[in-house]
Design a protein around this nucleic acid. Structure first.
Length: 376
DNA sequence: TAACCGTGGTG
DNA sequence: TCACCAAGGTT
């Protein structure tokens, strides 16, 4: 049965490019059983595409399972609070993805009776849905004959066609899109989209492509004409990430800790954290901890107890956060422009927290080992 | 166009 | 330790 369906598929695309034909023939036997490929509903495809944005499959899988258990449908998602959604997203990063997905769900329930649009042009209007995700959902979930080209796909096509233009330029994407649309039969575009990604992730990787087992190797220009096919597309090197030094103060009062909610937009939007901020030039961490606390909460403290230094890396900078603790703040609490709460440890763990804050929590447990400070 | 937006795996 | 980078979107 399998051989017959494979040859039928291959026969139908006889007019296509040899690499396209080889890819489409290879895919059915090399298609990994990923969770979003079971029961392929538009909602599941959409959630998976959002999660997979800039994220490896292995990292996305557990989040996808957890998210679908907690929010099995668009309506359940729309009925949840943003905080609940962010909590499930906690640790996955790029939190705007979760906020946008939630906003879009609410918008669809409010305006479209909870139905996910079938056409990519309509999907494209939803928050957090750009050209790629719109095309991917429309083609994978609804069979719209539209090309969905991600960075995996662009890398593969650039190697096939020896496309040497700057990968960050519009020209690069435009030329590859044109090539694909010319060489893939429209009715095969959905399969092609997925097959190309699969090839890009499993064999035609950024470095060290596995040409020996690649179904398209014999017609791949990079393979045939370059000493290292992995040299295409060219990779631009980024400079080192700048280091930001900050101070964070955990205020404890009767077993409860003061936390602030970050503004909805921007870095870690909507997540909760302890008061703190960047050191000013020449300022000591402790002085910064006192100053930030005063500015953000109106509270003043005397000597701060150093607890740990937590290091963390974001998309475009690194931080070293000096964590302090105080049990004796003075003054009247006055937080402007953001929500604040006093929470016990159990309640704290129920809030959506940034990774860096999660790293701090073990240091704040009841002191078995007073004065303990982390390395670094 | 380019900066911004997290996190974890990898060599 | 370090730089790369992974099913992109927004501003």
């Amino acid at each position: 049965m399998r051989r017959r369906s494979r040859s039928l598929r291959a026969a139908r695309s006889l007019g296509a490019d040899a690499r396209v034909r080889a890819l489409l023939d290879w895919f059915p036997d090399h298609r990994r059983p990923l969770p979003w490929r079971r029961r392929r509903t538009p909602y599941r495809v959409w959630v998976s595409e959002v999660m997979l944005q800039q994220t490896r499959v292995a990292q996305a899988v557990p989040y996808f399972e957890r998210f679908l258990r907690r929010f099995p449908s668009l309506r359940v998602l729309a009925a949840a609070s943003e905080e609940q959604v962010l909590k499930v997203w906690e640790g996955a990063g790029y939190y705007a993805r979760a906020r946008n997905l939630h906003r879009a769900a609410r918008q669809l329930v409010r305006e479209q009776g909870g139905r996910i649009p079938r056409r990519s042009a309509e999907l494209r209007k939803l928050p957090g849905v750009g050209p790629y995700i719109a095309a991917a959902v429309a083609s994978l979930a609804y069979g719209e004959p539209i090309l969905a080209l991600d960075s995996n796909g662009r890398r593969v096509l650039a190697r096939w066609t020896l496309e040497r233009s700057d990968p960050s330029s519009a020209r690069f994407s435009r030329r590859l899109e044109r090539w694909a649309v010319r060489h893939v039969p429209p009715e095969r575009l959905g399969e092609f989209n997925e097959a190309l990604m699969e090839l890009g992730e499993t064999l035609c990787r950024p470095t060290g492509p596995q040409c020996a087992v690649c179904p398209a190797a014999s017609a791949c220009r990079a393979r045939q004409e370059l000493p290292d096919p992995g040299a295409i597309p060219s990779r631009r090197r980024r400079g080192p990430k700048p280091l930001v030094v900050g101070a964070v103060t955990a205020i404890e009062r009767r077993g409860r800790w003061l936390v602030l909610r970050r503004p909805s937009a921007g870095l870690l939007g909507g997540l909760w954290e302890f008061p703190g901020g960047k050191l000013e030039p020449g300022e000591s961490p402790e002085a910064a901890g006192r100053r930030e606390l005063r500015e953000e909460t109106g509270l003043t403290v005397g000597v701060l107890e150093p607890v740990a230094t937590v290091r963390h890396e974001y998309s475009h900078f690194r931080v070293a956060l000096h964590l302090f603790r105080s049990r004796s703040p003075r003054g009247r609490l006055r937080v402007r422009g953001r929500r604040h709460r006093w929470v016990g440890m159990r309640e704290l763990r129920r809030l959506p927290l940034p990774r860096a804050t999660l790293k701090m929590i073990p240091f704040l447990r009841p002191a078995r080992d007073p004065g303990r400070v982390s390395r670094g």
